[in-house]
Design a binder for these strands. Structure first.
Lengths: 272, 272
DNA sequence: CGCGAGCTTGATGCCGATCAATGCATGTGG
DNA sequence: CCACATGCATTGATCGGCATCAAGCTCGCG
């Protein structure tokens, strides 16, 4: 299960994100080829995600400092939480393999998915404000994260300006992303929301070496709906509609994008 | 016009935020009493907003360092922009007096208000991610901001861990706030949205020494609607409904909260 | 094989959008 | 000072998109 970026080769697995990753980022294989349990500590400096993750743009020297910071890993199986609302905040987490959702919940039990995170993306930034987490992070497939002790990150980023700057950029990017979601939730119609969602997802997958046109959703219709402010039936219907219109091929969670430009047009056209 | 926190006394102005500020934060009056043009540079260390703004929790010594950082002010008259999408990012801005909105816009011209900022709140965090601003910041009344050159802030926060920590908290708080807005946009109905909005607004005003129960809206129905994902007519109708139900008194932009608990109940009750 | 979680599809109804007219406050120029 | 314009708010009538309720369907799994 749950191979995302560490697939040793395209060994015929069925449940991966559509296709075989194989691009820009060479898959730094751990010495020895024993892959499943990740027996060796993989340093940031040799991690195949370094171009997508916290280390972006760091010098060789800075990178080695980071290695000492990111010492431990944590495995989270599908359905388990990495942290939940109210937990004491200690660390940030970088997704190494797998897929997560974050969600906040109101007093009355309603909850809202605030994001989906894949390899190279950071989890836990919400915790800094109060020293407690303010959302739940749930693994949607068996996953592994790198643990980044926050106090050490602060310390290290006082020494290395590039790291400091990169960290600030990541936080800022999250804010900008959130604003985009607000725009989506506040002023788009169902079709536009789903189209925007799919395009965003494939774009991020593509940056990780996956196909731009075919993907496997890791989340349910209900989770998509929660993220997009729609009910699961509406999500389902919209998928069907897109299929009828020749924009997608949908087979449960397997999606193939047939007409990317068509989707893009949906997002850009002011609702008529 | 446009006095918010610097009102020298409750001198009978009509258009202020409801009432006379007078609480915890003593209004550090500039020596000499000449108030309107803010002739003297007001240092962070003696600013009446220091408990709400960037300097929260800093030591006396750190504060004095900040003073050197925040050297300039900028006045923005009502309707003008402090920055707009695409502008090069140089500085953050702390609202000193006045009131702002931020909004993002899609290609097709739709736009979405992403927040309203009042005294002590920071503007411009979105710009860090790309070295360009990704939203517009518009003054809703004549305002004044403190300019915080970003590169100097980074520099200073390498030296002063409290400042670093506080800055990170502010960014994180913005992320948490955004998640709250997503929850609102994704799963609340019109009445709940407006109730939540009003409660949030009064809470922030109260923290600044204003009345908890009476306020003057600085934004139009349309801007409220954009923020809440509603049309202006719906906002207006909902105000009227609240008035009929005895929750509010509404007179154009003058709002008096009659039954705060009633509003709170609306927000918490799962939509029935 | 049969169970159950998740997905699809249909029928119906409601909340909020849209269209349209009126009201109210502020400001401007004659 | 009044007449009028302008921007914003209110209110009504109608419409449509999405939620809701309710069956079936699919597929993976014990």
């Amino acid at each position: 299960m749950s191979t995302t970026t560490q697939a040793p080769s395209c060994s015929g697995q069925t449940a991966t994100h559509g296709e075989c990753p194989g691009r820009a980022l060479p898959l730094a294989r751990d010495a020895g080829g024993a892959v499943k349990a990740e027996p060796f500590k993989v340093a940031c400096s040799s991690c195949n995600l370094r171009e997508l993750c916290l280390p972006v743009g760091l010098s060789r020297n800075d990178l080695e400092q980071l290695d000492s910071l990111v010492a431990t890993r944590r495995t989270v199986s599908r359905g388990d939480t990495l942290f939940r609302t109210g937990d004491a905040f200690q660390s940030l987490y970088a997704v190494r393999t797998g897929f997560f959702k974050t969600c906040v919940s109101a007093e009355d039990g309603r909850d809202q998915v605030t994001g989906f995170q894949m390899a190279g993306e950071l989890l836990g930034l919400d915790g800094i404000s109060n020293d407690r987490h303010s959302c739940d992070a749930v693994a949607l497939e068996d996953s592994q994260v790198c643990v980044i002790p926050y106090s050490q990150l602060e310390e290290l980023s006082r020494e290395f300006t590039d790291l400091q700057h990169q960290f600030h950029k990541i936080m800022s990017r999250e804010i900008v992303r959130d604003h985009g979601v607000m725009l989506l939730l506040g002023s788009m119609r169902a079709e536009e929301r789903l189209a925007a969602f799919l395009l965003n997802l494939t774009q991020r997958l593509q940056a990780r070496g996956f196909s731009a046109s075919s993907l496997v959703l890791r989340m349910t219709r209900e989770e998509i709906g929660s993220y997009l402010g729609l009910k699961l039936e509406t999500v389902s219907r919209t998928f069907s509609k897109f299929q009828e219109e020749g924009l997608l091929e949908v087979k449960q969670r397997q999606i193939r994008i047939v007409d990317q430009a068509g989707l893009q047009a949906l997002v850009n056209s002011s609702s008529c």
